[in-house]
Amino acid sequence: MRHHLLFIGKNLIRMILLLFGVSVAAFILVSVSPIDPLQANVGQAALGSMSVEQIEKLQDYWGVGQPPLQRFLAWASDFFRGDMGISLLYRQPVLEVIKVKLANSLWLMCIAWVISGVVGFVLGIISGLKKDTWIDKLIKGYSLLIASTPAFWLALVLLMVFAVWLKVLPIGLSVPIGMEASGVTIGDKIQHAILPALTLSITGISNITLHTREKMIDIMESDYVLFARARGESTWSIVKNHGLRNVILPALTLQFGSISEIFGGSVLVEQIFSYPGLGQAAVTAGTGSDVPLLLGITVISAAIVFGGNLIANVLYGIVDPRIRRGGKRS
């Protein structure tokens, strides 16, 4: 019990430090950004026709001229009290904005996460088992090609092929244009999520495949697999008894660690498909100097990624008997 409390306590401190560091870094980047919030959000023409009082009011609203440290401390103290502030662009509480955007993104990312995890795992195992055969070369070639392809470029290609040429899938957004919210069906939502989810999956697969392949090759060359063969176990029996058992542990770590990559990828992909998710909101907040929203998204994203890694750590302790039983003994 004491062991568990210590574990929780340690990770809580780690998370607080991480979130603090991430928010400071994000704030510094926004502060030194050359973007003038007034020019970016109101426009030069509109500003020219305004009176000095109006402009001063706007400057006050966007926090221009306030010392950065004071701004950050004000945000941080509110945040600690559970108030994430009001988004300057959306004119809604940051929490509300994030909730809506996250719901859109989350389902996109979950699909991509599951597909890339499952497909990458299976491909990696096949490739590792059939090392140096044509099928391994094919899978490895695909993975290396995709790993060196930028996600936004792939998104553009898919968009051109499926939305522009074949016209089978919508070109962007998360729901059909000009339709009432009540009229949107699940089918519509799925149709709109296919391309962005596909892009994220395709890019996510290669990393998982290459790592799983490498691990599988190690396992198949291990002494215990050699001995299993000496004992007459068939290849299938070896994969079932020893391969999967040993490859699942690193795969778990990889899978939960890959949340950060899916998150990062979604920022670009959502932008290209004009998909109103968290990634797009982050870009809008960044280019529009919406500091409270940007910091809110940064902190929430970091917490989710941290959570993923934490889950991987906890699962490791549950799945690996050397940690589970070894820990109890010592």
């Binding site: 002494d223 050699l226 001995f227 299993a228 008894n241 020893h242 058992r245 040993n246 690996d320 050397r322």
Partner: peptide
């Protein structure tokens, strides 16, 4: 075959 050591056994089984 009788191997050299327990390193020839699957550590997770």
């Amino acid at each position: 075959l009788v191997p050299q050591s327990v390193a020839f056994l699957d550590p997770l089984m």
